[in-house]
Amino acid sequence: MQDPTPLRVDRAGAVGILELARPDKYNALSIALTGALQSAFDDFERPDSGVRAVLLRAQGRNFCTGADLAEVLSLRGDADAVRRFIGPGHRAMRRIEASPLPVVVACQGLALAGGLELMMACDVAFAASDARFGDQHAQYGLLPGFGGSQRLPRIVGLRRAMDLFYSARWIDADTALQWGLVNHLVSPEALAGAALDYCTALADRSGPGVALMKRLARTGLEGTLDAGLAMEERDVTEGLLHGDVTEGLAAFQSRRPPRFEA
């Protein structure tokens, strides 16, 4: 039986909030949940939505411990069924990365396997000081299914990624911060507020400017340095023609905070 609402969607001003809502199943990633993530971004990215930043968080003690085991077990022996499960997960992760909106994730408790893959797809990561991260696929003869084999080496480097894959060990939040897997470490009780405050401040930035910055950084990593520099030259020219730049420069000259259009 599917959860009636595997993803809770909410708003806090200009911040869209996505909350994994399967705490009794450790917020395991199901087809319904990854599909709901994609639909939520469709809604948030509408021009009239008013959303300027997205916060991804989870209910319960743990962020997410991976794919829904019951669904995975039901797929064995059926290649088409496996593709129908893996495909939406991959598309959800890429949807987060490709979104023009900045996406911040807040992790508590365990972020393992698919949960680790989900948090790595986000732009900025907050973690509670008692959070733990890991990937146990190799321990059970499995492979990462939602992009972990590609994103983890890109974020923490090849040797650290291979060690985490091979050993299947969990790392603590301090190690995750040292490795660059997360950006901000806060106490468990401060996690929700700190992540939301960050998103609220981010929502005051220039929407087009942030979108271009995200596209440049993410797309540039997938090509050569020269290709990335060419994109930057093109996009900075486009950006300087936008009205937000006029407001930003006026604010800088007047020594006041900029007031960008919603």
Rank of each mutant, 00 (worst) to 15 (best):
residue 50 G to F: 03
residue 50 G to E: 03
residue 54 V to F: 07
residue 51 V to P: 03
residue 80 D to G: 14
residue 60 G to E: 07
residue 107 C to P: 05
residue 107 C to K: 08
residue 73 L to W: 10
residue 102 P to N: 02
residue 73 L to C: 10
residue 92 A to G: 05
residue 49 S to W: 01
residue 78 D to Y: 09
residue 54 V to Q: 02
residue 93 M to R: 10
residue 69 L to R: 10
residue 51 V to L: 00
residue 89 G to N: 06
residue 65 T to G: 11
residue 94 R to M: 15
residue 56 L to T: 02
residue 93 M to G: 03
residue 71 E to P: 13
residue 78 D to Q: 13
residue 79 A to C: 07
residue 77 G to I: 05
residue 69 L to F: 08
residue 55 L to W: 13
residue 101 L to E: 01
residue 99 S to I: 03
residue 64 C to I: 02
residue 81 A to T: 00
residue 58 A to W: 12
residue 75 L to M: 11
residue 51 V to C: 02
residue 89 G to R: 11
residue 82 V to W: 14
residue 42 D to N: 09
residue 58 A to M: 10
residue 109 G to E: 03
residue 50 G to Q: 06
residue 62 N to I: 04
residue 79 A to P: 13
residue 69 L to E: 02
residue 108 Q to R: 12
residue 44 F to D: 00
residue 91 R to F: 05
residue 85 F to W: 14
residue 90 H to F: 14
residue 106 A to M: 06
residue 82 V to L: 15
residue 84 R to D: 15
residue 87 G to V: 02
residue 45 E to D: 11
residue 102 P to T: 01
residue 93 M to S: 09
residue 88 P to Y: 06
residue 66 G to D: 11
residue 94 R to L: 15
residue 107 C to V: 15
residue 49 S to P: 11
residue 85 F to C: 08
residue 71 E to S: 14
residue 59 Q to D: 04
residue 108 Q to D: 00
residue 94 R to N: 15
residue 54 V to A: 08
residue 76 R to G: 01
residue 106 A to G: 02
residue 104 V to C: 09
residue 70 A to K: 14
residue 107 C to H: 08
residue 83 R to Q: 11
residue 44 F to T: 00
residue 101 L to N: 01
residue 80 D to Y: 10
residue 95 R to F: 01
residue 95 R to K: 10
residue 55 L to M: 13
residue 46 R to G: 07
residue 54 V to D: 02
residue 92 A to C: 08
residue 87 G to T: 12
residue 86 I to T: 12
residue 88 P to I: 04
residue 80 D to L: 14
residue 109 G to W: 07
residue 54 V to H: 09
residue 93 M to A: 12
residue 55 L to R: 13
residue 66 G to E: 10
residue 95 R to I: 05
residue 94 R to F: 14
residue 101 L to P: 03
residue 87 G to N: 11
residue 43 D to V: 12
residue 76 R to K: 01
residue 54 V to E: 00
residue 82 V to S: 15
residue 83 R to I: 11
residue 105 V to N: 02
residue 42 D to M: 14
residue 96 I to S: 11
residue 46 R to F: 04
residue 106 A to Y: 04
residue 55 L to C: 05
residue 50 G to M: 01
residue 54 V to R: 09
residue 78 D to G: 12
residue 50 G to L: 04
residue 76 R to C: 04
residue 86 I to E: 11
residue 99 S to G: 10
residue 53 A to P: 12
residue 99 S to L: 08
residue 53 A to T: 08
residue 49 S to K: 05
residue 102 P to F: 08
residue 66 G to W: 15
residue 64 C to A: 13
residue 74 S to Y: 00
